[in-house]
């Protein structure tokens, strides 16, 4: 593929000055400093297509956990001199700029990345099938972790990972984010009937910063 594209700026591979404009820009990570936010906006302005790459860019990722805690206390715990360290709420890229496409996951699925990159190069709008992780998990004929009593979120989370976590006996914790238009309440009720508290469920959805995606409005705690 390197034959067909010109790499503008990829600091892992080269040390050349940044290009003035981009056809496609892949942005990893969630902004955490003032400079990050400024650079993101600059990149948006000079790029035709902006793709959010990975869970931090698409959802906020693990750094967003502090949004659900007392982030000022967390800062004081880690740093004595904290006044000059930026401590914004962590938001996905789409909070700051228009995001054209998202490639979710932590880590991303490399096959999916290559497929979408090729589609973008060919001018085909990429689409990730809106299927739950359960769909891929059942194809693999895995035993169901939810039925075994584990807090697996596969029923409402976006597939495309090959259900890699449940296939390894680890319940889905939603690193790819929820499918569009899902109703989280059914799964929530199911988990609560399995003796999980709302607090425990929230801890899981906070992990990759998707509590605010599952519940766009503040949840009504039962």
């Amino acid at each position: 593929m390197a034959e067909h594209v010109k790499i503008g700026d990829f600091a892992f591979l080269e040390d050349t000055p940044e290009a003035p404009i981009y056809d496609i820009v892949f942005v990893e990570g969630a902004p955490i400093t003032e400079e990050n936010i400024a650079r993101l906006k600059k990149l948006r302005a000079k790029s035709k297509v902006l793709v959010a790459l990975g869970a931090c860019a698409a959802l906020g990722g693990i750094a967003e956990i502090k949004n659900y805690q007392d982030k000022f206390e967390r800062m004081r715990y880690v740093y004595k001199n904290f006044e000059s360290i930026n401590n914004p709420d962590i938001k996905p890229l789409s909070y700051y700029v228009k995001v054209d496409w998202e490639i979710p996951g932590c880590p991303i699925n490399k096959e999916e990345f290559l497929k979408i990159a090729k589609q973008l190069l060919a001018g085909i709008p990429p689409a990730i099938a809106q299927r739950p992780v359960c769909y891929e998990c059942q194809i693999k004929q895995n035993k169901c972790l939810l039925q075994e009593g584990l807090p697996c979120l596969g029923a409402i989370m976006l597939a495309g990972c090959g259900a890699i976590c449940p296939s390894n006996n680890y319940p889905c914790d939603g690193c790819r984010g929820p499918m569009k238009n899902t109703d989280p309440d059914k799964l929530n009720k199911q988990l609560m009937s399995q003796n999980y508290t709302q607090e425990e469920i929230d801890l899981i959805t906070q992990r990759f910063g998707l509590e605010d995606k599952v519940y766009p409005e503040p949840p009504i705690k039962m």
Partner: peptide, 26 residues
């Protein structure tokens, strides 16, 4: 150094020992 602070040691507090290693992996 132009990296922001993710406050890992802070955000792990009050969280379950069963999940923290998955978080620190990140």
């Amino acid at each position: 150094v132009q990296e922001g602070a993710r406050l890992l040691e802070g955000i792990l507090r009050d969280r379950s020992i069963f999940e923290v290693s998955q978080i620190t992996s990140r």
